Amino acid sequence: MGRPKTDLFKINGKPMLAPDNGVGFSYEDLDASDSGRDESGIMHRIVVRYKVGKWSFEFGSISEADRQYMESLFADNAEFEFTHPDRNNAGTAVTSRCYRSKYDLSWYNAKKGMWQNYKFNIVEC
């Protein structure tokens, strides 16, 4: 029996596996390259986009089969549709265009096909 799936988070419509711990959410405004302080120290901010989302996932241990399932969701796509709770109303799902640029994991037990510390971030495009 593998790890349970959750409909709270989906990649291209397919449910992700439920992570061990809470999912980290962060939002960041993107400023234009010509934003900054002038010679008198006054900040002139030109916002290109507000509240670009980033979600951090962690799995303490994961089987080879579950690792393969998760990696199949990303399938070496540069971008994908990510369904997640809305930042203003967690009871409502929204879908964003996102990417995953990196992931980390350690091979814990090769004989049993177990991995640990599987971590990745999903970032809004």
Rank of each mutant, 00 (worst) to 15 (best):
G2I: 10
G2C: 12
G2M: 11
R3L: 09
K5F: 08
K5T: 10
T6E: 03
D7T: 07
F9M: 00
F9Y: 06
F9Q: 03
F9R: 02
I11S: 08
G13K: 05
K14H: 07
P15Y: 01
P15S: 01
L17W: 04
A18Q: 14
P19S: 06
P19F: 01
P19E: 04
P19N: 01
D20S: 04
D20I: 08
G24S: 00
F25Y: 10
F25V: 09
S26H: 01
E28R: 10
D29K: 08
D29M: 02
D29P: 02
L30Q: 14
L30Y: 09
D31R: 12
A32I: 04
S33C: 10
D34T: 10
S35T: 01
R37N: 15
R37Q: 15
E39C: 12
G41M: 13
I42M: 15
M43C: 14
H44W: 12
H44D: 04
H44Q: 03
R45F: 00
R45V: 12
I46C: 07
I46F: 13
V47K: 02
V47L: 03
V47H: 08
V47P: 01
R49Q: 15
R49T: 09
R49S: 12
Y50K: 14
K51W: 11
G53H: 04
G53V: 07
K54R: 13
K54T: 09
W55T: 05
W55N: 07
W55L: 09
W55S: 06
W55E: 05
E58P: 07
F59V: 04
G60P: 07
G60V: 12
G60D: 13
S61C: 07
S61T: 11
S61V: 08
E64Q: 11
A65N: 10
D66T: 01
R67D: 12
M70C: 07
M70R: 06
E71N: 12
S72T: 00
S72H: 05
L73R: 03
N77P: 08
N77W: 05
N77D: 13
N77Y: 08
N77F: 15
E79D: 12
F80M: 09
E81W: 06
E81C: 03
T83P: 04
H84E: 04
P85Y: 01
P85R: 02
P85Q: 03
R87E: 03
N89E: 00
N89W: 00
A90E: 11
G91Y: 05
T92L: 14
T92P: 00
V94L: 05
V94C: 06
S96G: 00
R97Q: 00
C98I: 00
Y99Q: 10
R100P: 06
R100A: 13
S101Q: 15
Y103C: 12
Y103G: 11
D104R: 13
L105E: 04
S106I: 14
W107K: 15
W107S: 11
Y108A: 13
N109T: 06
N109H: 01
K111R: 10
K111F: 11
K112D: 11
G113S: 07
G113Q: 06
G113L: 01
G113P: 05
M114V: 11
W115M: 15
W115R: 14
Q116S: 13
Y118S: 09
Y118D: 10
K119E: 15
F120V: 13
F120E: 10
F120A: 15
N121T: 15
V123R: 15
E124V: 02
E124Q: 07
C125N: 13
